[in-house]
Design a protein around this nucleic acid. Structure first.
Lengths: 218, 218
DNA sequence: CGCGTACCCTACGGGGGCGTAGGAAACCTG
DNA sequence: CAGGTTTCCTACGCCCCCGTAGGGTACGCG
């Protein structure tokens, strides 16, 4: 369902219908928030880049936080839908690799969206340090893992650790990958990561034991 | 070399020697920056929590960014030294596990310091999105990996991917772990992560091949 | 053409934060 | 206790930004 393919070149600043203006502001806001971070972006800059004046932003979104919330929400919908589709069919191994691949492609195609999801959120809706999405994702993966662990006779309690490890590595590699100067193709990166995770999980000892006694400082 | 064990209870606000005041401001600043993020912290709040007034901060550090830079620098020194020590001896497997363990302990002992390293940096010294430290760390790991990969006959070019994957998973798990309500002991988490990474690397196919052809959208 | 509606603007109040000017108060030294 | 040094303070200028008040300007419809 395309969002009314209105060309976004308001050079002569024609009046826009309310829905079109909203869409435009969401798009512009995404870029600005991604570049500056929440605290450092000003409503003025967004309005300016959209070719309009501040009060319009307030009319449509109620303020800075309102706009931010809408943008993040859409971004989350977007990526969650894509991942959900990716893991909807195939062998576990395939689903893993597809999920990683889809995530990486998302990061590449919408770097600003990804940046917003990784960056600082407004103080009002921050639990810890990380924006909630990544942890949400990790939690979902965690439930899947817990079930699989139970089936395979592993300690279900440790599943969340592996879930977070997986999400963390994908997210971090994604960040590095987009900012890298000569990035390898997404498929290559995805297959490496999936291989690492898959082989790691496959050959996991039933109960990993710490190797060495804690070493005191010399 | 202890930093002049001055007790940090300026309840009656005695005058402090310059070095002591600097130390105190670094400590207070660490907490405030970690809690609020760079943009949202005010010099005023730091001064207030230290029991002094703003101009002192400016005399000692030249401003907000100056203080921030000093704090980050110390934090980086701290963690890099600890990790360097952890990987200074032992079998590769032991060094891996020790590095992870030391990192996790650092995260637990100095959650505010870790938060600063993961949080947004001031716009002036930001390359991409992530503060530089994590990428620095990943790069160092990357050089080690590249060498080992070459020795073992793997494609050296893909080593950075695995290096970043490792760092990313540790960092993300660390974040989740500190904010978790019932965190398992560091040793447990470390051994799980190390096992995942180790087994994953150990059983890596020489050249991971993408499983499926890219799927177009339906 | 007159008029209502939808879209948009300039202009301002209010607040907060960075950084500095200029001086006070404690402490040290002789 | 006089004079210098170190530490610290109050008070302010300035700029930026959020959010709003109150009013313009196009466009459709009778």
């Amino acid at each position: 369902m395309p969002k009314t393919p209105q060309p976004e070149k308001p050079e002569r600043r024609p009046r826009l219908a309310a829905s079109a203006r909203r869409a435009q502001l969401v798009e512009v806001g995404r870029l600005v928030f991604a570049k500056r971070g929440y605290e450092a972006t000003s409503v003025e800059e967004i309005a300016e880049r959209a070719g309009i004046s501040k009060p319009i932003v307030y009319e449509h979104f109620g303020g800075k936080e309102g706009l931010y919330a809408v943008i993040v929400d859409r971004e989350v919908e977007h990526i969650v839908a894509r991942i959900a589709e990716a893991i909807s069919a195939g062998s576990p191994r395939e689903r893993l690799e597809q999920a990683v691949l889809v995530f990486l492609r998302y990061v590449k195609e919408r770097p600003e969206g990804f940046a917003m999801l990784v960056r600082d959120a407004p103080a009002s809706k921050r639990t810890g340090e990380m924006p909630a999405l990544m942890f949400d994702l990790a939690d979902r993966v965690g439930t899947i893992f817990t079930e699989q662990f139970r089936k395979a006779g592993y300690e279900a309690k440790s599943a969340p650790i592996y879930a977070h490890a997986l999400v963390g590595m994908v997210a971090f590699v994604g960040q590095w990958w987009t900012e890298s100067r000569k990035p390898p193709p997404a498929e290559t990166v995805a297959s490496h990561i999936a291989a690492l995770a898959w082989m790691g999980l496959r050959h996991l000892p039933r109960t990993p034991t710490p190797l060495a006694a804690p070493k005191g400082p010399p």
